[in-house]
């Protein structure tokens, strides 16, 4: 089933003084299947974040349409359904906390939905369990690491029971351990709960873990393919200001210097294998 469908979507921020309005998202058509894990990449200013905000009606398209499980985001009566279906997690964990005790913070969403107390408790329990933070329910978020805070931000969104999780550079401010924690949580949600994940990132290693990668450039979709196939395009990525992951960079440099190594290698095991094979040949 299609979770989110975009048809020829355009969006421009309001014109500022003498500068004409430019489409930040410019004619994007896209379908995201339920249960998919999609990475979105592109340089700063390529339209990724605007695209993310169009997915749950934070922004409404100027032209074209965005449909979330069959509901148009411009349908004012149903906007809360749309927002409940598509949860957003942003970059800075500190900006996403509303309460000084973890369980109160997680309960904020379901409380606003007007749910019964028992149901709220159930959801808080469930959400904290999903992100591995159950033992912290009575703690305060302010003394936690970035990775822990970001997992709480995810739990806060999960308590609304969304079907799609959109992460807008949610790993950008974290250290490697914090990033791994967040990636593990969203992969588990994707596999276990069949939650669709749309993950915007600048880290190519994270892109490799997705089923599908969308490359944005100038508000349009430049590439839409499996990660492996995207990185196999080599030098073409430069025009989107992208660089492949370290392993592919090394493989590319070896091939460039004449060594018999395929350029499209994306994992350490593949590169190790390719070097061994090539060196043992006569």
């Amino acid at each position: 089933m299609t979770a989110i469908k975009l048809e020829n979507v355009c969006y421009a921020y309001e014109a500022d003084g003498d500068k004409a309005a430019v489409n930040a998202v410019d004619g994007v058509s896209l379908e995201i299947e339920e249960g998919a894990f999609v990475a979105v990449v592109g340089h700063n200013g390529s339209g990724k974040s605007t695209l993310a905000r169009l997915l749950n009606g934070l922004l409404l398209p100027d032209k074209g349409s965005v449909t979330v499980f069959g509901t148009d985001t411009r349908d004012e009566k149903n906007i809360y359904n749309v927002r409940s279906s598509v949860g957003m997690v942003f970059q800075n964990p500190d900006n996403q906390m509303v309460a000084s005790v973890v369980e109160d913070d997680i309960a904020f969403g379901p409380e606003n939905l007007g749910l019964q107390r028992e149901e709220i408790i159930r959801r808080v329990d469930w959400a904290l369990e999903q992100v591995g933070m159950s033992e912290y329910r009575k703690s305060t978020p302010f003394r936690m690491s970035g990775g822990q805070k970001q997992r709480l931000a995810i739990a806060g969104v999960l308590a609304i029971r969304p079907k799609v999780l959109v992460l807008d550079e949610s790993t950008a401010m974290l250290d490697p351990k914090g990033r791994r924690e967040v990636m593990d949580v969203i992969h588990a949600l994707n596999k276990r709960e069949k939650m669709s994940v749309i993950h915007i990132t600048h880290y190519m290693e994270e892109v490799l873990e997705a089923d599908r990668v969308i490359v944005m450039d100038g508000g349009r979709i430049a590439l839409d393919d499996a990660p492996h196939a995207v990185f196999a395009r080599g030098a073409e990525l430069k025009k989107f200001r992208l660089a492949p992951p370290a392993v592919t960079l090394i493989a590319d440099a070896l091939a460039e210097c004449g060594a018999d190594i395929p350029r499209s290698v994306t994992t350490e095991e593949e590169l190790e294998e390719a070097i061994c094979r090539s060196l043992s040949k006569d």
Binding site: L254, A259, D260
Partner: peptide, 20 residues
């Protein structure tokens, strides 16, 4: 790695650092 290739007699070019 390129040095290993060169030792095997593979025709490899000079390498001056990765510069994507």
């Amino acid at each position: 790695v390129l040095k290993k290739f060169a030792e095997k007699g593979a025709p490899v070019k000079e390498f001056s650092g990765i510069d994507w």
